[in-house]
């Protein structure tokens, strides 16, 4: 193979789109030609930079809201034509004070709620750990012993629940650390996986589907009959699902569809 032929194939080699024969032939040429090897390294680096830059671009929240509130996409439920007085009219007099009390509660509870300092959804707050860890600002005890991570994290919550522990060696990801975070009085167990392809965090805590961020996209898995909630924050994608009273969030910089597929493959219907 000469340099002109090699230059034509370098792009496809980078994208893993070459057949075995062409790949072997090109790899042999690259091992002997520094010029072509340089071109290969440059194009690989460029592709990587473009991918990194793309991951930093997320759809703005306002666009997500526009789509979710667009009746052409998510039609609103048909509203009843009955007026609220119509609901009161057939009601027995005895039940009216009960209704009045219920109405009072309906007004008072939101006031009580909004008077408290508001915090962001726990699922989004948990993702801060991801950035902190990658920046080295999060002290963690590193170990590759999965059993040890599970045991220590379980002990940290008094055995109330266990962290989700997945075997991700097929993805070249290995457990490297575990830690416990407390947000709004709730303990979150975090198992951290790393590999040549990046990092993946697995968050486990007690909760309900209400813990998914309001703007998360809900995806129903018809095979497992489970809901999955996908959301992003600062270039980090996350998928939340519920197994009984346990909430699990997988977070990573990998593309959302791959992360969703991973969550679906690992989730166990409760």
């Amino acid at each position: 193979m000469n340099c002109a032929e090699a230059q034509e194939l370098i792009t496809a080699l980078i994208d893993q789109e070459l057949g075995q024969a062409e790949r072997s032939s090109l790899e042999e040429h690259l091992s002997q030609c520094s010029g072509c090897r340089l071109a290969f390294e440059d194009e690989s680096a460029l592709k990587q930079k473009i991918r990194e830059a793309a991951r930093r671009i997320n759809a703005p929240g306002q666009l997500r809201d526009r789509i979710l509130s667009d009746p052409r996409i998510f039609p609103e439920k048909r509203r009843s034509s009955r007026r609220w007085q119509d609901y009161l009219r057939p009601m027995p007099p005895l039940l009216r004070p009960i209704l009045a009390f219920a109405l009072l509660l309906a007004i008072a509870l939101p006031m009580f709620y909004f008077s408290k300092p508001r915090s962001e959804p726990i699922a989004l707050a948990a993702l801060e750990t991801y950035d902190l860890f990658l920046r080295g600002d999060l002290p963690v005890r590193r170990t590759e012993n999965t059993d040890q991570i599970v045991e220590e994290l379980t002990r940290a919550v008094g055995g109330d629940f266990h962290p989700m522990g997945y075997n991700l060696t097929a993805m070249n990801l290995r457990p490297v650390a575990g830690l416990v975070r407390e947000i709004d009085g709730r303990k979150i167990l975090v198992a951290i996986y790393q590999g040549p392809g990046g990092s993946l965090f697995c968050y486990t805590f007690l909760g309900s589907a209400e813990d998914a961020p309001p703007n998360a996209a809900r995806f129903f898995d018809t095979a497992k009959k489970m809901d999955f909630y996908a959301f992003s924050r600062g270039g980090i994608n996350a998928v939340l699902h519920r197994e009984g009273r346990i909430i699990c969030i997988l977070a990573s910089e990998m593309p959302m569809e791959k992360l969703l597929a991973l969550a679906q493959s690992k989730a166990k219907p409760s």
Partner: peptide
Amino acid sequence: GAVASEAMIHLDHLYR
């Protein structure tokens, strides 16, 4: 509804 929900998964990609 299922198509709409699944489509939301790809919102970031489409925006990029």
